[in-house]
Computed example of a mutant assay.
Amino acid sequence: MTRWLKPILYLLLSVFLTRLIPFSSFFRNLDTMVHEFSHAVMALVLSGDVQRVELHADHSGVTYFRLASSWSHLPIALAGYIGASLFALLLFRLQASGKQKLGLILMSGIAALLLILYVHSGFGVYWLIGFLALNILALCLKKQEWLRNGYYGLLAFLTLEESAMGPVTLVLNSLDNSRSAGDAYSLQEITGLPALLWSIVFLLVALACVSRSLQLFAGSPSRPSARRSKGSGIWSRQRMDI
């Protein structure tokens, strides 16, 4: 129990503190972007046809795709929340290695791919353009490396928080009305297992990634060291009201 309590307390403190930062809500859509990108990539891996992706101002998103096999929906449904948690962990691993610039390039690459291929209307277009512009600006800060690394750290923490709070919302929605549990409800429809069970699986994966990310952060350098179903489907990310 102690193993889980410390990262949970750190996560709650981080959620409280980062919500005091102006414009932090804008950057929380990064987790939504990665979530929907994970759905899209898995659909493509399974030879599906990704039709479009939507990103919304309330931090929700939707991926529209078409597959030949109904059971192919299972890994796609799993990919969203798990992919977002693993991506947050990757950001902290890159930070621990002093590779913040590579992390910014990776985030920018995902944003550019979505903008070019799948996000062509609505809020998502403006958000992706704004996010890309800020990242390019950060990448150009050669003499102000501390500022670029601080910007990267903010993105990493906000992504980590959102990747964990999303499953928390799923658990609460599953207890109230499983139909509002997004991907967890989709997994219930596919497997017959309750949405609450899938929500807990997502939450445990997220907490494991939070725990490891915080361990990496505690030992990471602030800068690089001199050495050292037939038919169509829709997967969506629910709005998080916590």
Results as ranks from 00 to 15, higher is better:
118 Y>G: 06
75 P>K: 08
195 A>P: 10
217 F>W: 04
195 A>S: 15
176 D>L: 11
89 L>C: 09
30 L>H: 10
167 P>T: 12
207 L>P: 02
214 L>D: 01
120 H>A: 04
60 S>C: 12
58 D>K: 06
82 I>D: 14
138 A>G: 03
81 Y>R: 15
84 A>R: 09
112 A>D: 04
83 G>M: 08
211 S>W: 11
191 T>N: 13
104 L>V: 08
221 P>A: 04
1 M>Y: 08
172 L>S: 05
216 L>Y: 12
35 H>S: 10
226 A>T: 08
99 K>W: 12
141 L>M: 15
145 E>N: 10
211 S>C: 06
85 S>M: 06
151 Y>E: 03
183 D>F: 05
166 G>K: 06
161 E>W: 01
133 A>F: 09
105 I>A: 11
160 L>K: 04
118 Y>M: 10
7 P>N: 02
134 L>V: 00
169 T>E: 15
75 P>E: 09
210 V>P: 00
216 L>E: 12
150 G>M: 00
86 L>T: 04
142 K>C: 01
42 M>F: 13
201 V>R: 13
159 T>H: 14
195 A>T: 06
208 A>S: 15
89 L>W: 14
34 V>D: 11
190 I>S: 12
200 I>V: 15
216 L>G: 02
121 S>Q: 09
117 L>F: 14
190 I>T: 10
30 L>D: 14
57 A>F: 11
185 Y>K: 01
66 R>E: 15
79 A>H: 12
159 T>Y: 10
142 K>N: 12
90 L>C: 10
33 M>A: 10
95 Q>T: 07
